[in-house]
Design a binder for these strands. Sequence first.
DNA 1: AAGCCGGGGAA
DNA 2: TTCCCAGGCTT
Length: 349
Amino acid sequence: MSHFAPLIQAWYRQNHRKLPWRETKSAYKIWLSEVIMQQTRVDQGKSYYYKFVENFPTVQDLANADEQEVLRLWQGLGYYSRARNLHTAAKQVVNEFNGVFPDNYKGIKSLKGVGDYTASAIASFAYDLPHAVLDGNAFRVLSRFFNDATPIDTGQGTKVFKAYAEEVLNRENPAEFNQAIMEMGAMVCKPKNPDCENCPLSDSCLSLREGDPKLLPVKSKKVKVTTKYFHYLIYPSKEIQLIKREGKGIWQNMYEFPKLELEERKLKSEVNKMVEDKFDVKLLKKISEEKHILTHQHINATFWEVNEMLHDEKTVKVDLETINDLPLPRLIERFLENNAMLFGSDGVK
DNA sequence: AAGCCGGGGAA
DNA sequence: TTCCCAGGCTT
């Protein structure tokens, strides 16, 4: 096992994908890429990396932007707290670090939205500091290599696997080592069908010898999924009424149609009664119904045409042009794509 | 420690 | 369907 690092690094030099953020030593750009890639596949995040580097060439540019502009660029990527925290962190760099991106682990990790993984990644990739990354890939590679069934989503798991990671880390070249363990996990030591025949560690992998790689890593928690029923209210007009989501839940600070949110499915007559009580408008007809599936929420969305504009003072009215400046959940973005005719001149369909 | 937060691709 | 992706914050 003392050959862990040289084996995966030799493999990495021969087999790695060419990715834009691997071509730079800019801590700022590496930070952007790492936050964008949190819980996100490379194919999904790559175009967002290009967009952010293009729109915000420097951390000052990002700090000076409006949060709404940042969220709009993030639209469709999900986990929007990452975008809000990214913006906060840029302002931290400007205000607390004199506009210079911090160059040590502690300073990096003090930035909003930067945890142990991201701080270790930036410290090693940008500054060649010896911090081992522990992401989903590293958890998988290490749990299999050491044949360790400690649940990774517990305090004990974090402790155990961080120790493994630090043990095998190549302190002479932490940057390449960290890239290598993650790339190996993504390309070879895959979740479902690990390609053990082509694995550089197959000779010394304990789970391959004594156990079953496919059974690792172990997770203890189960995802709890809740179902919700959203009833969106739409008055066809070239003035589109939207509301900014505030408070806690999902899509914070993003825009959607005014809506009634219910815990269970209701008949139209019941929905209509509640809508009349709350908004003082009537449901005319159902425009469409969509299922929006998220990791922890199944949203049943019904889009209703109503008989008049809502009187709610918290709504904003925008046309089809300016709506392009507002951050929208994918559910709303998709509805607008399919129903733009509702909001043409005079609301003519 | 447990709960919460998106969206999409792969098997 | 189920799993998981270059995780982190709040409670």
